[in-house]
């Protein structure tokens, strides 16, 4: 186990930002920390980075206290974007690389590689403040891992990126993972978490609601989302056994079941033994689970 967070609490004078939080991240995996604004994600990151003290609990990396490790093992992309406005893209990357213990000569190859990969070649000598927001974010992202950290923390890396750049970023994250980097990231865009994460932790006002593998979380809810295309009226569907709720979508209904065992019975009724265009039983999406967990039941 690479990162172990054990019963960590962060308490301020009159409120608790993180309450008795525990989770572990395996080496080389991508771990998602999800929660609404103010859930305690950034505070957790800051405690891991030793930017803030924990009130109670321990955080360790490879069995060593986080206070004692070499800080250059870590890479960090904060939620609020921060780069030196008047420094050029290239200088910026060299500066952060050198600051984190790498020699300029060693950095050259990586700087060139990432500038090209993120399509920043033309902006190499441009001052950071003249770049578009998306490009600034790409520069900062490269800066956060240019020193090849073992452990990379990305706070909301996807916010503000267009779909093309989002894909670039996803590919980069997977590339880093393949090269052995352990990655912890937060997001409130669940589709990104679902695509990338092996494990995750759900936070609500500093309290962990779930911590473990994505599949385990989904299994907790079971396959209760049923999408059907049928001529039946909504009233008829609602009256079916085991149906908790029905919503109308585009040429289809989405049924929420009490549990997946009702599905077969419903199939028989809806299809009437005939051909049916659509009948699909799925796990809830992470988005729906998140809303259920955090919102307290309103899926």
């Amino acid at each position: 186990m690479a990162l172990v967070i054990q019963e960590v609490t962060k308490r301020y004078q009159n409120f608790v930002a993180v309450d008795n939080l525990s989770f572990t991240i395996e080496k080389g995996e991508i771990f998602g920390l999800i929660g609404q604004n103010g859930a305690g994600k950034t505070t957790t990151f800051r405690m891991i980075l030793d930017l803030q003290e924990t009130t109670a609990g321990t955080i360790s990396w490879n069995g060593e206290s986080i206070h004692a490790i070499d800080r250059d093992l870590l890479g960090y992309l904060p939620e609020e974007r921060g780069i030196f406005p008047t420094m050029t893209v290239e200088d910026q990357l060299y500066f952060f690389g050198e600051l984190r213990g790498r020699k300029k000569k060693e950095l050259k190859e990586d700087v060139n590689y990432w500038i090209e990969r993120f399509e920043l070649e033309e902006k190499r000598k441009a001052k950071a403040e003249t770049l578009s927001k998306g490009n600034q974010q790409k520069v900062q992202l490269i800066a956060s891992f240019i020193h090849k950290p073992e452990f990379l923390i990305l706070d909301e890396p996807f916010s503000g990126l267009d779909p093309v750049n989002k894909d670039l970023l996803k590919e980069a994250i997977l590339f880093l993972k393949e090269n052995g980097t352990t990655i912890l990231f937060s997001s409130h865009q669940m589709e990104n978490v679902e695509e990338l994460c092996d494990h995750l932790c759900l936070l609500k006002r500093g309290v962990s609601l779930f911590s473990g593998s994505l599949l385990d979380l989904k299994k907790q809810y079971g396959k209760t989302k049923l999408t059907v295309r049928t001529d039946m009226a909504i009233e008829e569907l609602t009256a079916l056994p085991g149906v908790k709720d029905v919503t109308i979508g585009k040429e289809q209904y989405t049924l929420t079941l009490e549990d997946e065992s009702y599905a077969k019975g419903i199939f028989d009724i809806v299809s009437k033994g005939d051909y049916i265009e659509k009948f699909s039983l799925d796990y809830l999406s992470l988005d729906e689970i998140f809303k259920d967990k955090v919102g307290g039941g309103n899926v």
């Binding site: 960090y76 921060g82 780069i83 600051l99």
Partner: peptide, 16 residues
């Protein structure tokens, strides 16, 4: 102030 305002400081303080 500008380092703090532009949040560069947070990145810097993660390593120093």
């Amino acid at each position: 102030a500008s380092e703090k305002g532009s949040r560069v400081l947070e990145v810097l303080l993660a390593s120093i």
